[in-house]
Nucleic acid binder design. Sequence first.
DNA 1: GCCCGACAGCTTCCATACAAGGCGGGCAAT
DNA 2: ATTGCCCGCCTTGTATGGAAGCTGTCGGGC
Lengths: 224, 224
Amino acid sequence: MAALLEHTQETIAMRVVDALRDDIITMSLKPGDVISESDIAARYGVSRQPVREAFIRLAQQGLLLIRPKRATVVKKISPDGVRQSRFIRESIEVEIIRRVAGQPTDNAAEVLTTLIADQEAASAANDSRRFHTLDELFHRTLARLAGVEYAWQLIDDHKMQLDRVRYLTLGVSSTQRAIAEHKDIAQAVAKADPAAAERAMRAHLARAELLLNQTISDFPDFFE
Amino acid sequence: MAALLEHTQETIAMRVVDALRDDIITMSLKPGDVISESDIAARYGVSRQPVREAFIRLAQQGLLLIRPKRATVVKKISPDGVRQSRFIRESIEVEIIRRVAGQPTDNAAEVLTTLIADQEAASAANDSRRFHTLDELFHRTLARLAGVEYAWQLIDDHKMQLDRVRYLTLGVSSTQRAIAEHKDIAQAVAKADPAAAERAMRAHLARAELLLNQTISDFPDFFE
DNA sequence: GCCCGACAGCTTCCATACAAGGCGGGCAAT
DNA sequence: ATTGCCCGCCTTGTATGGAAGCTGTCGGGC
């Protein structure tokens, strides 16, 4: 397996990155919280050096704000940044769905329907975490079908802003509705109708706008 | 000025980042070249630490590949990565131009025409470097007019892959033709015709495809 | 009461030393 | 001649001490 050959060992800095990112997305570390290299180093029982490198990585991903010689704070969520992140995502996903619907491969529709079936199972079991994972897989699969899986990876990097908002609205979002919209998309792909697919995708992504405004008024301190 | 208030001082690591990135984009450091923290540190007369942090940043931007305990190499250009980077750019820029042409502000067309005039001046003076800058400014201005300047900043991060290719083709690209295409775009904006604007933008971005294939056969060692 | 400067305590930044692992050449055994 | 191991040299990773700089506080002068 490639994984064995690559042999990219687990370094301490990477572990710290993962741990911190998880803490931030799950709001265990709240926007505005100030952290210091020494703090985190002591908490994880490691030296300051790997923590520092983790800070740099997370800062580049827009989750931390390093103020030189001053402090490092968990970046507050920028409403405008979230909107533009969604603008980017919508731009790319619309282009993706057009391609997929425009040049459908044999099994594209089939793959999507099986994914939707899994989502219905997760929804019925009330397993929202699994549903979230499957939802993400649905969109990533579309990217793969369009031959631009790397593009999805880019979305993923700048999607963490959205993920923090999503975490705040956990349970609010209706899985039933999302599934229905996924079906609309899959149906347009099956019919090889790019225009309909684009409409369905835009409708699917548009729902988030309302959630954002609601969230801002619910947690004003987390936004700038 | 915000710059003065922010007072973000120039740190050594930042200088190293800028210097290395410039070296990589201008092919002073060629794809496949192996560099080491000690090397660069000695070359710039600094310690290994800031160099190491610069490596991390550049690795996250896809310009370097850090192989733990082995070496750090200038990443070779991935043809598929370039294509997908362009896919991303096209997706976003098409969405941008649609918005600009769909809801044109009073002075949008005016701003664009003055920019094009500057480009003609640079082209006449045979100042290709200045033309490149103005070309980039043209596209960034469109993003600003659409209210998503941050989105352009994101493109900028993942555009360095394209920039390396562009540098290899310096002088090949026809400024005259680019200007004509810019005029088409500006005209569609003036007429508030989103469909025409989209067509013009796609045509404008499509030209690069040919250049890429040509470049790959000219410099096979730089691609993976 | 108000202003302003010295200072203590914090932060991130940089330098240096050491640790851990990959890689290749030389050497010995077969 | 070939194979396999060992060891020095290289790399990146981690630890730690000190340097540079920001911030708030406390106290003295007005």
